[in-house]
Nucleic acid binder design. Sequence first.
RNA 1: GCCCUCGUAGCUCAGGGGAUAGAGCACAGGAUUCCUAAUCCUGGAGUCGCAGGUUCGAUUCCUGCCGGGGGCACCA
Length: 552
Amino acid sequence: MIRARLKKRIDHCFAQGTELGYWTEAAAGLYAVEEPKHAGQGDYATNFAMVVAGKEKKKPREVAAQLVELLAAHTDLLARVEVAGPGFVNCFLQEGVWQSVLPEICTAGDAFGKSDIGREKKVLVEFVSANPTGPLSVGHGRQAVLGDAIARLLEATGHLVTREYYYNDAGRQMRVLGESTRARYLEQLGLPFTFPEDGYQGQYIRDIAQELISEQGDRLKEVAEVAPFKEKAEQVIFADINNTLARLGIRFDNYYNEHSLYENGLVDDVIATLRAKGLVYDKDGAVWFKTTEFGMEQDRVIVKSTGEPTYRLPDIAYHREKFRRGYDWMVNIFGSDHIATVPDVLAGVKALGYDPAKVTVVIHQFVTLLRDGQQVKMSTRKANFVTVDELLDEVGPDVARFFFLMRKADSQLEFDLALATQQSQENPVFYVQYGNARLASIAKQAAAKGITRGELAEALLARLTTEEELHLLKAMAVFPALVESAAVALEPHRIVFFLQELAAHFHSYYNKHRVISEDVDLSRARLWLCEALRIVIRNGLTLIGVSAPETM
RNA sequence: GCCCUCGUAGCUCAGGGGAUAGAGCACAGGAUUCCUAAUCCUGGAGUCGCAGGUUCGAUUCCUGCCGGGGGCACCA
């Protein structure tokens, strides 16, 4: 917020300079105002002179001098301006500027960090989308938390968000699930059975079979259809998945069933539409989509010679429905194993006359799980995977969420169970939460001693002048811009890193300075500082769906 | 073979066209008569995978190579 203020002034100087003939408008919008890495280089620095000099073929130092001259009129904001290094202009703010962030934060409260840059754009965030064939694995967990945090960021920045779970309960996978369940059912009744070659081997299938036996007895032993087994399994597993998601604090607005696309003729309609456009042809008994028309190496089958569609076709139909439902932006969270489906679907969208640029796919890499220092290889079929439920039993939702968001989506995430469980008191999430608890405790202590913050307008915020206090004020001032950039980039890990840094600044401050002292004015100013910190930490934690306990 | 992605401190990872590349863990030492020690302070640690190119300036962008992961089906 302070940076934006300074940027405006520099933009103004740029315009003045063009009028004065110092430079042309060639460098408009190309220079930046940023925070220097090192102390002594000012509160902010701009590469203005280097960028302008590059365009004008001038010497950066000369341009810098001209900018300094123009900035001299802004003594209300700037105390001092220096030219440094190859031509950086370092800006030192007037005292009191940083303190002005406190009233903004404290007045905004829960709203601090929120914005309306989304302009009520309708966004569909699709994530998890696991078919109900088994419990959610740790990999799904990462996706669930990532998707939900992205949705929270978008909501905080003024987007109208729908969280959607796309699933299919009609495909081959589900048939195998039903057959697996029937096999276990017969097995547990002591009857002859054949377990499907690629069946689901998890214990949960046995549990479902047992449930069927206690509900139905052996009444299903002669049933030829797989339907009753499949339906039972689906119902139990979906309930389980939803329960897991609820434990993570994740709730979907909509579950979209792939099967409904067939029932409503939407899949056939895609073929018909593409065929009418000449983008589909028959070969070897299959139906092909001319993806080569969209820059791909080969055409793709969308209906197999058996008459069954491939996954691409309903995926394309589904995405068309997203457009038809009126979304302005579609965000898909996929695991890296689904990366290959993306170009096909985007080509389909384009072929149907919609703008693929409105679809953003966030690909996240796998979770590598370490148990006892050894990597656990996971496979859904063989059921030797760690479920999100098991993880939650061990570490709880706050730790799980925080850990899943500690890495950017592009990076593989190493989840060390030994670290997350046995040494949980050393987890970074507690470090941040402890900061919040300390802040709450300080407020309580102050109240117990009869010291209140008093009116914000009357607080002597100018008393906040220590290096640590200025660090904290600067850090908090960045928060709204951080939330915006994290939302636009769909990168919630930035919030996690910010929180860790802010908490570190606060813990350090706490150990060096006393908030509550004999100096009542100073105490009050510092209590307001703490109040602002509490707001920022809590708002940040809320963005990633982690709780902010007041005692620990 | 082709496509995507990653390669930064002993380990796990941030960062990213600019001025001296950061954090946590681990390791060593220290801090509490006082607001929660789940905290803090001090210390060492790096050819930013390799080689070219673009640029006033590259760890960051481009190309190639090497290495890890994922994907290239009439599986999803």
